[in-house]
Design a protein around this nucleic acid. Structure first.
Lengths: 110, 110
DNA sequence: TATCATACCTCGAAATTCTATGTATGTCAA
DNA sequence: TTGACATACATAGAATTTCGAGGTATGATA
């Protein structure tokens, strides 16, 4: 059983989402499943460990907030350090994208 | 020690290179290091196992050819199956790229 | 003859993502 | 009232991928 399409650049996606507004995990998954192609998605088992790691190195902070119904939500907030991190990863993504694209678009499709 | 930038979509890059002409491993590394940003590169420990895997599933075939000097080179040739594989991975890459870009470009850089 | 560049290869570590499962809360229908 | 469902968070272990480090071999060149 081979993986079809792998989620990557996950922390970049999370940081990008949080740059607009504070969000909680489950909400991010829903937001991404709307924007990402159906062939790949951010899974819970991928997201939560990433959030914890980002909090651990100070890129985000978190706080609990009661919801109208259900379990309380854990919101994440982008810190100054996180914003710098976002810019860094964003520029790396652009470089990567350009480089791969240069090779791929020069492919000869006979 | 954290990885800075990870090589991904490696088989796509290899297939794309081989679509233009038969190449040998060491040559592909040189070709990619020219096109890819200096922050990431195709490493030998990554490439050779990929070439063997591609040959194993019939996407490429190989043949030896003497060089003017040094060890004989092992050239790889893209098969029909490999061309189909290339198209498949190429379209997946485009979808992935668009999706990530949609999220990243909507980021708010305060 | 030693060093360097070319050229291939592989092992095991490290990193990353996915699968599967578990916990908890509240709603709603049967 | 209970069972199913949606929300919401979490983690352990498997699978996959890439990388670092080393090894082998050939010939040129200093």
């Amino acid at each position: 059983m081979k993986r079809k399409q792998v989620m990557a650049h996950t922390s970049l996606l999370v940081l990008a989402l949080l740059s607009a507004e504070d969000m909680y995990g489950y909400q991010m998954i829903a937001a991404l499943s709307g924007k990402l192609d159906s062939t790949f998605a951010m899974k819970e088992g991928t997201l939560y460990p990433i959030l914890h790691a980002l909090e651990n190195d100070g890129s985000v902070t978190s706080y609990e907030k009661e919801a109208a119904a259900g379990k309380p939500r854990k919101y994440y907030h982008l810190t100054m350090k996180g914003k710098l991190q976002l810019r860094e990863e964003q520029s790396q993504w652009r470089a990567y994208q350009r480089a791969v694209d240069a090779v791929v678009s020069s492919a000869v499709l006979a």
